[in-house]
Design a protein around this nucleic acid. Structure first.
Lengths: 321, 321
DNA sequence: GGGCAGAGGTTACAAATGTCATTTTGAATA
DNA sequence: TATTCAAAATGACATTTGTAACCTCTGCCC
């Protein structure tokens, strides 16, 4: 059987082989037999088509897009893992789904590490729900930050407790306000041995589950009178939100503000050394602080919603220095 | 490692696996390792996605569409093979490319059969160009129809000769006009032993390469004075064109007209028994007669152009009886 | 509490696929 | 005509994929 080397003929062959293989679902051997050529040649032609990029595969699964976003986020912000959830119409549902997913993500790391540190916020308050206790080589849960005096379901104390409960672990709290009135008060507090010990524990946890907050009225941090008073000031400093009560600017840098200096909480910078630091947050209003937190490189895991994820990956980095 | 049976979680898993496999190009084993599940499960998930039809593959090759058309034509008209060529802007080029492709298609069957029968027409006049002689177990080429007295390059005599030449085969001609003036003349002609023998040869060829013609001024058959005279009459009979000089109606039936009865040529119906009967024709004006010829079931191979092919497969069959 | 259904794991195996080194072939060129 | 080069065929082989038989666990229904 002769074969002519006319270009168009070669193209026809290639197209036919590709069609039969990808659309027709035939096997390379079948195609070879049917067209009277070697399987190897079929194989090579298909290889060509593949490398030419002449073939585009589309997944019609609703969540396929999200997987693409997850990969993009990992790539973009150097993350070890990312989870992107469908954006629910109701903000409360966004928080719930993200919290639950964060719980599941946390769970996958329980096997390998001992101590877990947690932050606060409505999002994290849902994390406990989705964790199953099974691996009991864990030891404890630590709150990574000072707490509000008033319980609300999303207080770091409550978040830590709920996770400790489902896992059957001990729980440690930073029994202090998140912000002290002055450096003196802060120093005095830290002389308390118990508190210092817990702080030390917080430093040592290997897994951190943290949210971030914006500077709107709704945000957890704004419920604190001391922060409310300083909202304008914070904005002036360039702050776009907080991580563990620490205010960051759009670049993810810790802003120079008194509140940041009298804070009783783990520093975001300490998160950089954690084997697992999960940032769980979503919704349109969190976009700025999320972006900042990621640019700051404080986290290596992210849980967010689809719309926010899309915005995060499409946003240009302004630091083209 | 636990896995939760939440639907959305299962969907996420499926989407992720599918994405990594189809878009990410990872191997099933890699995916399994990375996601901490069995390869088998990955395989099953991918199988699910496949059967769900959630995956659509698109070929960006220019000719891929044509392959799809070829398959559709085969399916639609019960053909063994079909070739669809890009529609060239110039009609002459359409004829040339179709003729050349028909030659190549013919060639693939040379190995297995002895005698080749050919028709006429500008399209077929290009067929010889693309045939290489190699398999010399062939014996002869036969013209399947009476001929014009005047050579034009596309006369059946010339078509047969050119093919016989490249193949180094003997050539037989039906040395008679395509249409006789009367049944008497026809009968008288057929008393010629040589002619009858050639006719017999024509009946026996196993491979036929034939074109079809419409009833426009340009068509080969219209070059014959006797046909020109009867154009109106033919149209009245419902004729839409001819195959081997035999006029067919839109359904592909042989119309009842004197010309069809005094014709010196193989009957289209004889083509039905040929192992290989190739219809080579294209261009907008050939659509009707092409469709008719195919519906008549005279051919098991087709060579045409893309645009015509599209029209052929999309055209509704009116016989929903 | 016992049995059931079903998802998922384990093992094993056959088929399909990708790759390699080597030979053959065809066509172009000197 | 001889030479040379590239495409394609060949045969051998490792990897990947699909499939089956069989087992285990879990939630569920009675």
């Amino acid at each position: 059987m002769t074969t002519h080397i006319s270009d168009s003929e070669a193209d026809r062959l290639k197209a036919r082989v590709a069609w039969l293989y990808f659309i027709g679902g035939m096997t390379q051997q079948q195609i070879a037999r049917e067209m009277g050529i070697t399987r190897l040649r079929v194989n090579r032609l298909i290889g060509q088509v593949r490398t030419e990029g002449a073939i585009s595969i589309k997944l019609n699964l609703p969540l396929a897009e999200n997987v693409a976003l997850e990969e993009a986020l990992k790539e973009r912000f150097g993350l070890l893992d990312a989870a992107v959830l469908p954006t629910m119409p109701d903000y409360a549902d966004i928080q719930r789904t993200i919290g639950e997913a964060a719980g599941r993500m946390l769970e996958t790391h329980l096997e390998h590490f001992k101590g877990i540190g947690v932050g606060w916020g409505r999002t994290l308050s849902h994390a406990g729900r989705c964790i199953r206790s099974e691996h009991s080589d864990l030891t404890h849960v630590v709150s990574l930050m000072g707490a509000r005096t008033r319980g609300s379901g999303s207080n770091t104390i409550e978040v830590a407790t709920s996770i400790a409960n489902v896992l059957g672990m001990e729980c440690y709290y930073l029994t202090a306000p998140l912000y002290c009135r002055s450096a003196q008060v802060l120093n005095a507090l830290l002389e308390d041995d118990d508190l210092a010990l817990t702080m030390e524990r917080a430093e040592r946890v290997e897994v951190a589950l943290v949210a971030c907050g914006d500077l709107s009225e709704r945000s957890s941090v704004m419920q604190l009178g001391i922060v409310q008073e300083m909202q304008a000031e914070l904005l002036d400093c360039g702050a776009v939100g907080d991580v563990l009560g620490c205010f960051l600017d759009a670049e993810g840098r810790i802003v120079d503000h008194p509140l940041n200096r009298t804070r009783v909480a783990l520093s975001p910078e300490a998160l950089r050394d954690k084997p697992v630091s999960i940032l769980a947050s979503g919704g349109r209003n969190k976009l700025q602080i999320l972006h900042a937190s990621l640019r700051g490189g404080y986290f290596n895991h992210l849980v967010t919603d689809e719309e926010t994820a899309r915005a995060l990956v499409s946003e240009q980095d302004s630091d083209n220095r």
